[in-house]
């Protein structure tokens, strides 16, 4: 078991197998490095350097002397891990992280559940208007996140929303969707509306890749369409489900545009509602790029740990199943 776990997972982007030593020698030793050069330079310039700069910023802070007016009153000094300590002990960042966890607990299962159901329905033989339905479900993904949030925001505001108008005419209760618990539903709804189509396409594509003989065999064995879906289709698209789950976790942890767009419409969304909003606020509200850098690094680390942690668990489970 331990040996299988060490195998590199496909998603980490490890380059494929190296050429055999004999062939490499015959081509000369410099060639691989030459071929690697463009990628290395691009990686260094546009990936390693900005990350390095963010790390450097996060380890410094600005110190002011006296009233802080006039030239030379501000100095950038070494701060060590003080910015990280501040961020980790900041109750607002923790509260924001908890809010995002609550939001993710709604978004991820609902969105992926709907995407899977839609994909299975589109894949079943009885359905008509497949092309149109597929496009209709996918279309919201093409709407930019900010536009989607604005659109829904207007629909959530009782005074301008047609929904509330209908509820009012029918004499039904009119819930305040921009406050308390319903706010999470309101925010999740925007993400689900926008993201389901994309995930459905990913799952649907891998459903289409399953050879038809498999279904035929199942039918000959007397399996109902429901049994085929549950016992054959879902297990066979499990890798796509893992992938969409992986993307959804990352997208959830980085939630920013929906709450930021809804913020001006309600008193319930603070400027630091999600951790990423706090980073933005630190950088552009307070003008404190050093704290913002520390916050950004922490979010990146949390995202990496959570998403790759999930991949590892998923991979080891599927390998266990294969081993059986």
């Amino acid at each position: 078991m331990t040996s299988t776990r060490k195998e590199p997972s496909g998603v980490t982007g490890t380059p494929g197998g190296r050429p055999s030593p004999a062939r490499a020698r015959s081509r000369g030793r410099g060639a691989p490095y030459l071929f690697l050069l463009p990628a290395t330079v691009l990686f260094a310039l546009f990936f390693a350097l900005p990350i390095g700069y963010a790390l450097w910023l996060s380890l410094h802070k600005v110190e002011v002397k006296g009233l802080g007016l006039g030239a030379g009153a501000r100095q950038e000094v070494w701060a060590g891990l003080a910015n990280y300590a501040d961020a980790l002990t900041d109750s607002e960042l923790l509260a924001g992280a908890l809010r995002v966890v609550g939001y993710g607990a709604i978004v991820v299962p609902v969105m992926l559940g709907l995407a899977l159901v839609f994909a299975l329905m589109l894949d079943s033989e009885k359905v008509r208007l497949t092309r149109f339905t597929r496009l209709a479900i996918f279309l919201p993904y093409a709407v930019p996140g900010v536009v989607a949030a604005l659109l829904w925001g207007f629909l959530y505001l009782p005074d301008v929303s047609p929904f509330y108008f209908v509820l009012d005419k029918l004499g039904l209760p009119q819930p305040d969707l921009l406050d308390g618990g319903p706010l999470y539903l309101a925010l999740s709804n925007i993400a689900v509306w926008g993201g389901t189509g994309f995930n459905m396409i990913v799952i649907y594509t891998s459903l289409r890749a399953i050879p038809h003989e498999v279904y035929e065999a199942a039918r000959l064995d007397g399996a109902t369409p429901l049994q085929i879906a549950l016992r054959i289709k879902i297990p066979m698209v499990a890798p796509s489900l893992v992938l969409t789950f992986f993307f959804s976790i990352i997208a959830t942890l980085q939630v920013f545009s929906e709450p930021t767009t809804l913020k001006p419409l309600t008193n319930s969304v603070s400027t630091t509602w999600s951790p990423l909003m706090k980073v933005y606020q630190d950088a552009f509200g307070k003008g404190d790029i050093h704290s913002a850098a520390a916050g950004a690094v922490l979010i990146a680390v949390a995202t990496l740990v959570l998403s790759f942690g999930f991949l590892r668990v998923a991979n080891s489970r599927s390998q266990q199943e294969e081993a059986r």
Binding site: V64, L67, L69, N267, S268, T271, Q281, G285, K286, G287
Partner: peptide, 20 residues
């Protein structure tokens, strides 16, 4: 003063919650 932006942000969050 030199950190009006911080006071303004704090106002928005604290008073929005109080008004709500």
């Amino acid at each position: 003063g030199p950190n009006v932006n911080v006071a303004y942000t704090s106002f928005k969050d604290a008073f929005a919650a109080a008004a709500k």
